[in-house]
Design a binder for these strands. Structure first.
Length: 478
RNA sequence: GGCCCCAUCGUCUAGUGGCCUAGGACAUUGCCCUCUCACGGCGAAAACCCGGGUUCGAACCCCGGUGGGGUCACCA
């Protein structure tokens, strides 16, 4: 599942690559065999494509730096680890998990930070280590972190961030399974894949000095780093499922358009001048400035997303919207596929009328519903409110017969008829419009009534109105 | 708790020492448009976390506090 924080980071990478004419590389970091699955990789790619982030190099796009899956690069990491071992920049560690845990607990109990420095193994005679390995003793390979000095991350967003080396433990680079840890594989690949820029979430900031140390020990050039802040929920905690939709797929399911999510996410914390905010991806890329990205975590505002989504919905042509709506309408059972097929242009006109009124595609079935089907359910309470009035009871039947007698069924004809009658009765037109709306749509809010009636068609209008009259009569005799 | 990051309206932000009486957008709200609801238009309310410096002058620079976040794995 691709988390919004994750997409935003990917998006910043994409924007930066497009802005600078660089290459956007998708690398699958799947060194944890237990966790990554084929399905999760597919899902990730699907999400990226959905929102419009195309990668120049990576799985299915090939390139000169492959393979792009870390599980296919294990030999490379082993070789690099050996190099480090030979140089004396790394060592074999035979401490067991239990021993390490005990050390950590002891340190915590004494209030010291639990920083492992290798104990007896850090400077063990390589021959002794070799003997132990040959005897079948399990081990990990750890990096020999310098005990003094500092490592500085030159962050494009935050400036220099200094870490004291004494605060960095001798971290594992090769697990006892002879596979690399994330920090090691990432650092190695950044060099091997000639990455010029590493733009990632700021939860990685504390990993970066370790990766820099690896680069230095391997004599590799350093990429430029930029750590973008997290995306938080409304309670200022890291965004998660508790906050509603958190993955790209969930947003799609909740009626969000990919271009709207793209636009919103790009705006979130990217430091764009706020004169305008609706931009195409390429316009966004052109204006993107990595050093303007805000250093403070941004709260995800679903309301604003919805608002931007509405803007994008209104920009889509009625034809596109009709196409979008079709499967939703069929699925939610408001209309049969056959009926839609029989009169496709009608749906286009309906969408044109309704698009100002929806802000998520999931709103569509509900607001389109009354245009199809014959029967309507009236809410009894609301019905009484609309049809309990004397004026309505006296004049509604007359209104229906005038509509029935209309020579043509157009907006202006319908409007004239309604306004004409109310003028004769010296009453505001709304006293007829509201009950007629309720009778024909079953609701108190809809698009403009005249357009609505024309699209509804004379047949449905009359049928429903007459039913309302019957209800009305029953009401008055009770 | 150690280390690290961050701090302008409720939210996203503009602001880079005088243009700030702090601007925009979403949300809230008043009015207009109007057959309802939206859309649209015009308004309103709403913020520089606190305390010290530096300076003729600080939202902008420095220090401290407070607050929020991240991270402390043979996970990425």
């Amino acid at each position: 599942m691709l988390h919004v924080g994750g997409v935003r980071t990917a998006l910043f990478n994409w924007l930066y690559a497009r802005k600078t004419g660089g290459v956007f590389v998708l690398r699958i970091e799947d060194t944890d065999l237990a966790r990554s699955t084929e399905e999760s990789v597919e899902q990730l790619k699907r999400s990226l494509r959905w929102i419009g982030l195309d990668w120049d190099e990576g799985p299915e796009a090939v390139g000169d730096h492959g393979p792009y899956r870390q599980t296919e690069r294990f030999d490379l990491y082993r070789e690099a680890a050996k190099k480090l071992l030979d140089k004396g920049s790394a060592y074999h560690d035979f401490a067991t998990a239990e021993e390490l845990a005990a050390l950590r607990d002891a340190a915590r109990a004494e209030g010291r930070p639990p920083i492992y420095t290798g104990g007896e193994y850090r400077d063990m005679d390589p021959n002794e280590a070799k003997k132990r390995i040959e005897a079948g003793e399990p081990y990990t390979v750890r990096f020999k972190t310098p005990r003094e000095g500092q490592t500085v991350v030159e962050d494009l967003i935050r400036g220099p961030v200094t870490f004291e080396n004494v605060n960095i433990e001798d971290f594992v680079i090769m697990k006892s399974t002879d596979t690399p840890t994330y920090n090691f594989a990432a650092a190695y690949d950044d060099a091997a894949m000639e990455m010029s820029h590493v733009i990632r979430g700021d939860d990685h900031l504390s990993n970066t000095p370790r990766q820099i140390l690896i680069h230095q020990a391997l004599d590799y050039p350093l990429p430029a780093f930029a750590h973008v802040p997290q995306v938080l929920g409304s309670d200022k905690k890291k965004l998660s499922k508790r906050h509603g939709a958190a993955s790209v797929e969930e947003f799609a399911d909740q009626g969000i358009l990919p271009e709207a999510l793209f636009n919103y996410l790009a705006l979130l914390g990217a430091g764009y001048a706020p004169d305008e905010e609706i931009f195409t991806p390429l316009e966004l890329a052109e204006r993107f400035r990595i050093e303007k990205v805000s250093g403070n975590p941004a709260v995800f505002d679903e309301k604003k997303l919805t608002s931007i989504n509405g803007l994008y919905l209104r920009r889509r042509s009625p034809e596109e919207l009709a196409k979008l709506a079709t499967p939703m309408l069929i699925e939610s059972d408001v209309v049969s596929e056959q009926e839609l097929l029989d009169d496709a242009p009608r749906l286009v006109r309906i969408m044109d009328l309704l698009k100002e009124r929806v802000s998520r595609t999931t709103d569509i079935p509900d607001s389109v519903g009354y245009f199809y089907g014959d029967e309507l359910e009236y809410d009894p309470e609301e019905f009484e409110k609309q049809f309990g009035k004397e004026f309505v009871q006296e004049n509604f039947p007359e209104l229906i017969s005038r509509l029935e007698a209309l020579p043509e069924w157009t907006e202006s004809a319908v409007e004239e008829s309604i306004r004409g009658l109310s003028a004769e009765k010296e009453k505001g037109a709304k006293h007829l419009i509201h009950p007629l709306r309720f009778a024909t749509t079953g609701r108190t809010v809809s698009a403009g009534l005249f357009e609505t009636l024309v699209l509804l068609g004379r047949g449905r209008t009359l049928l429903r109105s007459e039913r309302a009259v019957q209800e009305m009569k029953r009401l008055s005799t009770e």
